[in-house]
Design a protein around this nucleic acid. Structure first.
Lengths: 217, 217
DNA sequence: CTATAAGTTTAGACAAATCTAAAAAAATAT
DNA sequence: ATATTTTTTTAGATTTGTCTAAACTTATAG
């Protein structure tokens, strides 16, 4: 069983290697976990002793099979709690991250299975991220970034790849929320900003925003 | 803000002084918190520095006003989560204590208020214990122990004063659950055991059990 | 009222997780 | 290819909460 802190490291390493497919670097971990590189090195050694990560000095870390299982479990708990907070307690999608960050460390497997059932086995969290099932299986459908679409393309908003409060609040304000149908009406050559129609309204989003909106065609 | 550990001490001190109305003793705290007396002394000093308890060497501790507020808040969180676990996730009343023990340390006040609302502002937890409101106000109705009733007395089961799994499972098995109406049919002089009728059935409970069942006449 | 027992505190050590400062390795630039 | 910068690691200190063993208070029993 891992400590609260160990779990946080595993989760961060998991997220970092998802994006890069390569080993997570000490500094990158330190930045995400809000600590110093020296502390990360210490913890990495501990996780390596426990066979949760593979570690070679100066080469970063990768999760082992068992480290990855542990990480996916944490992700499952986090995302299930996010669903609970939004659907049952009426939190907004930009308010749930920090609370879920605490709830995710409560370990009772029974609790998580019952929560899953209570929520009717949701497939995705409020940001569209897939929820691993109890065997750790993850729906790995990859969605297309809004910024990759062409004029005339239609699709559904399925998720986001940026979870900061400011970003989510912005989407909320302009009406870009999960499940909505959109159609691209124009792409500005100059700055790559995207004009689209959604629920009979025309809105415009910058390329930077479009990069973080995930679409199913 | 208190640490996880400090919160546990506050909670235990609160419960110990409820029963005795006097200062909580070092050894009693140590036993409840599963640690050694020396550790308790250390922590007590820390809590005293933070003005959460009044402490005089060799004289035990009492919660200060602010320590008591903190403790009541923890109790509120614990009991609300117990209601959630039993009513929403279908746990049995003997299964929820340990999980609630973890959940109670999640601090977001917003979370707790929304949970309270989601649960429709329950007044009591699954064992009949009162849930402090958000201002820390506690319904201090005191119920009568089943063991104090006389033959012929009628009443409602309102709570228990013993929360162990074995005890609760026993009550469940013989049908002594919250809200049930009972009538005392006989009290055995010899061992003080109580014969009572509940839902047209006759059952018998030992004096020891009867002492921990709380009744409203 | 003293002797013994029970309960509490102190002193010093330890484990987990962190930090700073300095050293070492790897990456990059000229 | 060497110098410089960036990244990572090591060494040693710090904080939180714990422990053991010994010392000290208070309670209890004769």
């Amino acid at each position: 069983m891992q400590s609260f802190t160990e779990e946080n490291y595993l989760k961060i390493i998991y997220h970092l290697s998802l994006n890069t497919e390569s080993a997570a670097q000490t500094n990158a971990i330190a930045e995400r976990i809000q600590t110093k590189a020296a502390s990360v090195t210490d913890m990495i050694k501990k996780l390596a002793d426990k066979k949760l990560v593979d570690y070679k000095k100066y080469q970063g870390v990768k999760l082992t099979e068992s480290g990855k299982n542990a990480a996916i479990n944490i992700v499952r708990r986090h995302r299930l709690w996010e669903v609970f907070l939004v659907e049952k307690l009426n939190f907004k999608w930009d308010e749930v991250h920090d609370i879920a960050e605490e709830l995710e460390h409560i370990k009772s497997p029974e609790l998580i299975e019952r929560l899953d059932e209570f929520l009717a086995f949701p497939k995705n969290d409020p940001h569209g991220d897939p929820i691993p099932d109890k065997n750790g299986k993850l729906d790995n459908t990859v969605f297309i970034k809004l910024s990759k679409l062409k004029t005339g393309d239609k699709g559904l908003i399925m998720g986001v790849s940026e979870h900061s409060s400011v970003f989510l609040q912005h989407l909320e304000k302009v009406g870009l929320t999960l499940g909505k149908q959109i159609r691209i009406t124009e792409i500005t050559d100059f700055d790559g900003s995207v004009e689209l129609s959604i629920e009979n309204k025309q809105i415009n989003v910058s390329r930077e925003v479009a990069k973080h909106i995930l679409i199913k065609i």
